[in-house]
């Protein structure tokens, strides 16, 4: 194993990690504010992928398709929140998990019905498909775009949460919904908005994924587990933690492919389990 391929894998890991981060961000936001673990989150992510595929095939306009996919996914998330999730807020955590699990089942099957059981993909827009050739593997601008998007989203989230009044209100709702209501904050509306934002972000991540990975049934099953592992290692609710861990997971898993091609995922999971054994609330968890 030479240094170049090592570096190339690390760079590839960076964009993979950024995609994981965009997936995890919505999950963290929804858990952080609404306190519901959204089992269907990856299903929304894949919905974004499929929508992107459909709109891009029809319009051939990358940006427009991206935005439409994002908004529709967010709207679906808001609908799910209003019709289902809202009714289980007062029930035990178990039922909240189960409700989102039911949503995930429905979404996965609906996707098979609409887009079939095969895989779909689109090609990277021409201007972005060029790039730098390193040791036989091309690192293209599209990958760079994803890394930048991830970073921008991270900065935007931190600024929003810490330096705007709406962000402050959002944090307040997370800490004490009842008191927030008593201060005149419409918590229901915030919950719906957070669900919209979280699932729209998932949709964005999914849409960005289609040009890189063929999307098909089963992808959501795999992604939700990865996303869960990231947010659990980071500590449930920690935004900065989720960003760092997502990038690390991306880079590590890419490099592991070089060292132990057979067991990359297994080793990653085992590392995760060991971290939790010693830091039950994650690396960046509050408690």
């Amino acid at each position: 194993m030479d240094l170049t391929s090592f570096l190339v894998q690390a760079l590839i890991g960076l964009y993979k990690g950024s995609l994981y981060w965009i997936l995890a961000l919505g999950l963290v936001l929804i858990f952080g504010v609404v306190r519901v673990i959204n089992f269907a989150h990856a299903a929304f992510y894949v919905t974004g992928s499929y929508l992107m595929y459909t709109f891009y095939t029809y319009t051939s306009n990358f940006i427009v398709s991206l935005i439409i996919a994002m908004i529709i996914t967010g709207a679906l998330g808001a609908i799910v929140e209003i019709t289902i999730i809202r009714r289980v807020y007062k029930l035990e955590t178990i039922y909240q998990l189960l409700a989102t699990f039911g949503v995930a089942l429905i979404a996965n099957e609906a996707q098979k019905l609409i887009w079939g059981k095969g895989v779909v993909y689109i090609s990277i827009p021409e201007t972005l498909s060029r790039g730098v050739n390193l040791g036989g593997i091309t690192i293209n601008y599209y990958m760079a775009l994803i890394v930048v998007t991830g970073l921008l989203l991270f900065i935007a989230t931190i600024v929003f949460m810490n330096y705007t009044i709406t962000g402050l209100r959002t944090r307040a709702v997370w800490r004490d919904p009842v008191m927030s209501e008593a201060l005149g904050i419409n918590t229901r509306l915030i919950y719906t908005l957070v669900f919209f934002t979280g699932t729209a972000l998932a949709g964005l991540g999914g849409a960005l994924t289609v040009p890189l990975i063929s999307v098909g049934p089963g992808l959501a099953d795999y992604l939700i587990v990865t996303a869960f592992i990231i947010v659990v290692i980071a500590g449930l609710g920690s935004i900065t933690g989720a960003y760092i861990v997502a990038i690390l997971v991306g880079v590590f898993s890419s490099i592991l492919v070089l060292i132990v091609p057979e067991l990359d995922i297994v080793i990653l999971y085992i590392i995760a389990a060991l971290i939790l054994l010693f830091r039950p609330h994650g690396l960046f968890g509050e408690r």
Binding site: V88, Y95, L98, A99, F101, G102, V103, L105, I106
Partner: peptide, 9 residues
Amino acid sequence: GAALIAMIL
């Protein structure tokens, strides 16, 4: 999935 949600609700 639909049955599951209906049962929970």
